[in-house]
Design a protein around this nucleic acid. Structure first.
Length: 316
DNA sequence: GGGCAGGTCTAAG
DNA sequence: CTTAGACCTGCC
């Protein structure tokens, strides 16, 4: 067992990020909050992985290709490619990205506890099921564009559009494992070639919304930083986001939660709507209910509910 | 081939 | 203020 120091570099060059109890990569990446991480089972020991439960995910964040693997009860930064040249260490980038400063084990226990007291067995089960699921701190612009694309859409198609958009407009990050990777496009890249946005695969009528959002960010008409909790309340942020074409209540809540750090956001999609109706008998004012029922953790409760529901449904 | 997918907009009542 | 319909497109 290696030491418990946070920043241990192993002989293979891996950096230990945290214990796998604190961060479940599969749940965190498959719960619908992000679109650029993919399961990448080791081709050489797939069988071993299936038995051990260890996983490998490759994704792009902060202009880096990041290869994460779990083994020996911990999550490791296997490699960041190309070499991270920023002054921020690999470990610190991911520590913040996964919000490892937040004690999610405690939050999960807290949600399970008060749900137990409320007699809310559904949320008790959901919280337990989702141990290790974390809400990422994603780039605000990436969240804005990604969730505009997510409207009336499904995950495979959303990922298809985003990857095609990144290939067309994002800075090349080179190859990794024989695959080409690109950073998420900067606002100026999208805004400077508005006509090409129409050509993004499966973008459809969402092209206009992407085009206008990029233009407003580039012109300074929309400053996402000003919508973070440091400068704005959740409600004001949603109000501002909703002034953009193609952003309604649900998308605004997603951007607020996943891109801006508003943990009181509660995106209500068809799944959540069905769950709130079947489990709590709520037919309207879903957000109001969530704010009262889930106290200070509506955003996390929403993710627990969403992921738990999806997984139960797929098992059928 | 018709229906659906992690909504939003628009035109009407 | 509430409520139908239409809507790009890939996939079953």
């Amino acid at each position: 067992m290696d030491s418990d120091t946070k920043n241990t570099k192993s002989s293979t060059g891996e950096i230990k990020l945290c214990r796998d109890k604190e961060l479940d990569l599969r749940k965190t990446f498959e719960c619908g909050q992000c679109f650029r991480w993919n399961n990448a089972a080791h081709t050489d020991n797939r069988h071993e992985e299936a038995v051990s439960g260890d996983v490998r995910y490759i994704g792009v964040a902060h202009k880096n290709i990041i290869d994460l693997r779990t083994h020996d009860g911990a999550v490791y930064i296997h490699r960041i490619h190309p070499q991270n040249t920023s002054h921020i260490a690999d470990y610190d980038i991911l520590f913040n990205y996964f919000s490892l400063d937040e004690d999610y084990i405690k939050i999960q226990d807290n949600i399970a506890d008060f749900s137990q007291k409320n007699g809310d067995k559904f949320m008790v089960d959901a919280a337990k099921y989702c141990s290790g699921l974390r809400i990422l701190r994603q780039d605000p612009f990436e969240a804005l564009i990604s969730f505009i694309i997510s409207a009336n859409n499904n995950i495979p198609k959303i990922k298809l559009s985003i990857e095609d958009m990144c290939a067309r407009f994002g800075k090349s990050l080179g190859e990794y494992g024989g695959k080409a990777y690109h950073a998420f496009p900067a606002p100026e890249a999208l805004a400077s070639r508005p006509d090409e946005i129409e050509n993004i695969r499966a973008i459809g009528y969402r092209a206009r919304a992407v085009r206008e959002a990029a233009a407003k960010v580039l012109s300074g008409e929309l400053i996402l930083e000003e919508l973070t909790p440091k400068y704005s309340t959740f409600k004001d942020s949603v109000k501002t986001l909703r002034t953009l074409y193609g952003i309604g209540e649900k998308v605004a809540n997603c951007v607020a939660l996943f891109g801006l750090g508003h943990m009181d956001a509660f995106p209500v999609d068809t799944w959540i709507k069905k769950a709130l109706t079947s489990q709590y008998g709520i037919e309207k004012d879903f957000e109001k209910f969530a704010a009262e029922h889930f106290k200070v953790h509506p955003g996390i409760a929403q993710q627990y509910m969403f992921f738990y529901l999806r997984e139960q449904n797929f098992k059928k």
